[in-house]
């Protein structure tokens, strides 16, 4: 099993509902966020191109954050979800330095926090909070190892890209472009 996500940048309107849903669902401290909206503007008038992406931890296959963690607090659980055990985190910041996506942050309580793909919801057969609230249904979540899952079909049928593939992290979030 390999959990992954596909996000359709052509359907995303950048409403930030996913951001708020995550903050509410995971009780994120005020002023912090695990996911965010990035807007890419390219070209000069009248040949303009706009791409809107909902970004978060890419739950990479090749994880520099898990590698550099000195205590083993950063680890990979079933389905390839990258998680942090709060009780084992000493707050050294090594994983934050090693993430090319700046997807991690230091929780005010002294441990590193990040997107968990809402594993508590996924374990109960639900979708992550961000996916469940998306008003344009531009996000797809599921098992990438299963060729019949919705996310696998979407990834197979569309032109896709990942973020900073040159970092060699093999991200598991695919953007449809």
């Amino acid at each position: 099993m390999r959990y992954g996500m596909a996000i359709d940048t052509r359907k995303c309107v950048g409403c930030a509902d996913c951001v708020v849903a995550c903050q509410t669902e995971n009780n994120i401290p005020i002023g912090y966020t695990r996911d965010w909206i990035a807007e890419l503007n390219e070209g000069t008038y009248p040949n303009l191109h706009l791409e809107i992406r909902s970004e978060r931890c890419n739950h990479c296959e090749n994880t520099p954050c898990v590698r550099t963690c000195p205590t083993g607090a950063s680890h990979i659980i079933l389905g390839g979800i990258v998680k942090v055990t709060h009780e084992e985190c000493i707050g050294c910041g090594a994983c934050i330095q090693s993430c090319p996506y700046d997807a991690r942050y230091m929780h005010p309580d002294g441990y590193v926090d990040k997107c968990t793909f809402c594993d508590h919801r996924v374990a109960n057969g639900q979708e992550p909070a961000c996916v469940s609230v998306c008003p344009t249904h531009c996000m797809y979540f599921g098992d990438l190892d299963d060729p019949n899952s919705e996310v696998s079909k979407v990834v197979a049928a569309n032109k896709i890209k990942t973020l900073a593939p040159e970092a060699g992290t093999k991200p598991q979030i695919f953007y449809l472009v």
Binding site: G14, A16, V19, G31, Y32, T33, W36, I37, A38, E39, L40, N41, E42, G43, T44, I52, G93, I96, Q97, D102, R104, Y105, M106, P108
Partner: peptide
Amino acid sequence: MREELITSGRMNLNIDPVLHIWH
């Protein structure tokens, strides 16, 4: 022109606007 912005206002302490987790 190529410009990328975070429009949902991410301002994680010591991560944004530039990473500064080690002092």
